[in-house]
Each structure stands twice: as structure tokens, then as C-alpha cells.
Design a protein around this nucleic acid. Structure first.
Lengths: 220, 220
DNA sequence: CGGGATCCGTTACGATACTG
DNA sequence: CAGTATCGTAACGGATCCCG
């Protein structure tokens, strides 16, 4: 494990960066915000990260108490955010908001999984969720399933199938990314770029309202 | 100038990190949020940064449009945030909020200037400023002056003297940092850790309210 | 003296190969 | 599947030097 190159400055920002400022670390957290993941899940999502770096970063995150490593089903190891690690949600959301200001350049690679979209939308949903709203929606993106749950004013978007969805929204990765970055209005998205199936009628109104607020927040 | 090690991922967070994710970059932005600065101002604030790294980072920030380099008074060069660069304020604020959760460790160095506190408090003030509030306050911290201005719902804290203050608050670096990190309540701070001189009577109420909201936000 | 540029030893990164 | 080991390359950090 590589040595910790700390800033050693008496400043809260430097202290934060000492924990999460290393290369790849924030992207690992990004993926973990979409739910627990195995080593290989992370390696696939972070196209190109070297195995030893992923090992290093995870060890440091575990050491700092942002991540826990647990035993999965068949002796597999699973990494998961701690409560402290969850607190990075707002940082990641602000980074996504800022990054959305820049157009993609150069040869861009589609991530190996869709955790990035789940995290971006999930973080926005956290901010606009109201206590009155209760629903579970299934997002089917290029065939992969994500689960948006909103209950008691708390929202999250997990990269896993939704057992009992109230709504099912099917769309493509690029379109969802465009909406989540504010490059596509919700209107444009709804007419033609996605398909919405409502299973629980009374949930539709709240869902549309939530999506509207998410898009509005993104374009702020 | 060192090559740009881009993530090349189709994800807004990765795009943000491609601009501001390098070591030192966010700390440079932190200092610039406290107002324009010369090369040596930055070098002093970022205790220990190598000159070539500061040169590199500034060049990249200028290239990406987050910073402009202008000619100062006597042929000196001055670095300043662009409108785009100002947009990093929320990221930096969230980092400060997160970093405040960790206690200082190891041999910690007091930064060479007080831009870090100015930025932290200024970013918080931006979020709690209301349109009705109009005031200019001088913060005198260990003898150095900062200027908190709140007008038309927009606040900022600049590391420079305040020409016509409505209030003057004198305190020490460690105490102000403690308040800004939520380690000290406003009550404790006001009774004994600072001295407030009110020059414009009708501004006092609004100022106290502002400070209360800032501290509340920090402890959220 | 401010504002860097250049040089050089050290450390981290990144790719590939390999192992339990 | 979940890493470890190795190794060339790139970035960092400290110092020194340069120029107006």
C-alpha cells in the first residue's frame, strides 16, 4: 500500500482531500453510492483502473472508515459505504453539477456499468425528495435495472433490480445522461426518448413532479 | 507542463475531476475564492507546494477557463477566478463540510495566510444570504483583514481590507476555524472568543442572524 | 524581490502478468 | 474472483538558478 501523501494543513478542505482527493478515489465512491459492489464490479465501472490501485484505494477508504468490506454470498468480498462514506453524496453531486458544464471531448469511453448515472440521479433525488412522497421506480437503462426508492423524505438510487415497482421507466444510457446533465429537457425526454409504464396509478403524479424537480435542480 | 491524465469517461463527475481533480488544484481554487492573488500569495497559502507544480496547475486552470491571469499594478501578474471558476464554490463548500468531520491529526501546519477561513465562511454565507440583507463586515483575524460583503442576496468573503465596514469582528484564527467547522457554538464564540464593534447600529441584528445561520449550516 | 524555469532524486501511477 | 508482483513511465517535491 502506497504511503499517504497528506497536505498536513490546518484546513477542513485539505483534511477532506487527504481522505478522498487521491486519483480514482472519488470515482470509486461514486460507484459505491449506487450500492454495494464487488471488486470486479468496481474494476468494470472504472474502465481502465489498475487492479493494484483499486486495492490501494479501497484499503485506504476502509482505513479511514468510509467503506466497509464484508463477506458476500459465496465467500465473495463486497464493499459498501459506511454512514460516513454516505456523507460524500453532496460532494459528488456538486462535482456532477460542475462537470455537466463541460462538453465531452476526446475519445470518451462508456463506463462498464451504469452506476454513474444511478449516483448522479440518486444524489439529485436526495435533495428534492419531500416527506409526502413514497414510491419505488424501476429504471431500465439499456436493459440494466436500477431502483429509485423514495420514502420518508429520503431517496436513493441503487444499481439493482426493483422488486415491486410502482413505475417502470425504460430508456437509453445517453438519453438518461443527457437529462441528468441538463442537455435534454424533461419534455423532450418524455416525448420520444423513454417509455413509462405506470403500475400504481396514484404514484404517477408524484413521480413526474420528482423528475421535474430533479431536472430543474440539474439546470440550476 | 505535464500531460493531462484524463479519465476519458463519459460521466460528469469524471469530467469535473479532469479539470479540478489533480493534486493541489482544489486548494488553489480554495485560495482564489478569497479574491485575486499573486503567485507568491498562493505559494505562501499552500505551504509547501513546489513552484513548478503551482505553475503547472495555474496554466491548466487558465487553459480550462477557470482562472484568468491579468496584469497587476507594477507589472505583477495576478490570478483571478472566472465566472466558471466561481462555480466551484459549492464543491469547495461541501468539501469543507465533509473535512470538518475529521479531527486534525499529525503535525499540522497553519497555512501561510487566512484565505482558507475566508473561503469556508464566504461559501457558507453565499448559501444563507437573503435578498433583504445588506452589510459590509470587517473580520480582523490575528491582525489580518477580511471583508464579508452581503448585497442583494449575494455574499462573498474577500481576503482584503474592508473600506467602510458596518461592523468589525476581531478574533483569532483557531477560534474562527472552530466556529466555521462547528467545533465551537456561536454562543461560546461570542462570549469570550471574539470582539464585535458595531458601527452601523441597524446592521447588527442582520449580522447576528447571518452568523447564526452560517453556524447552523456548518453543523447540519 | 517577485515570478517563474530547469534539473533531479523519489514516489505514485498504469499495464501486464501471475497466483491463491 | 480477488487480488499480488513486477516494472517502465509519468508526476511530484525540493532545490537551485534565471530574469526583469
Amino acid at each position: 500500500m502506497t504511503k499517504n501523501r497528506s497536505y498536513k494543513l490546518l484546513c477542513p478542505i485539505a483534511r477532506a482531500l487527504d481522505r478522498i482527493g487521491d486519483r480514482w478515489t472519488l470515482l470509486i465512491l461514486r460507484d459505491l453510492h449506487a450500492g454495494p459492489a464487488r471488486f470486479s464490479d468496481l474494476q468494470r465501472g472504472l474502465t481502465g483502473i489498475a487492479a493494484n490501485l483499486l486495492t490501494d484505494r479501497l484499503a485506504k477508504l476502509v482505513g479511514d472508515g468510509l467503506v466497509v468490506k464484508t463477506e458476500g454470498a459465496h465467500g465473495t468480498s463486497v464493499y459498501e459505504l459506511t454512514d460516513l462514506g454516505e456523507k460524500t453524496s453532496d460532494i459528488i453531486f456538486e462535482l456532477a453539477m460542475f462537470g455537466a458544464r463541460f462538453a465531452p471531448e476526446e475519445e470518451l469511453v462508456t463506463p462498464g456499468n451504469l452506476r454513474t448515472v444511478a449516483t448522479t440521479i440518486g444524489a439529485a433525488a436526495k435533495r428534492v425528495a419531500t416527506p409526502e412522497l413514497n414510491l419505488d421506480a424501476s429504471f431500465v437503462v439499456d436493459g440494466e435495472q436500477m431502483h429509485l426508492s423514495v420514502h420518508d423524505g429520503r431517496a436513493k438510487m441503487i444499481y439493482a433490480p426493483c422488486p415491486e415497482p410502482d413505475l417502470i421507466l425504460s430508456t437509453g444510457y445517453l438519453d438518461l445522461l443527457a437529462v441528468s446533465e441538463g442537455d435534454l429537457t424533461l419534455d423532450e425526454f418524455v416525448r420520444g426518448r423513454c417509455e413509462l409504464r405506470v403500475l400504481t396509478q396514484e404514484k404517477e403524479r408524484g413521480f413526474v413532479e420528482l423528475m421535474t424537480n430533479i431536472v430543474a435542480l440539474m439546470n440550476k
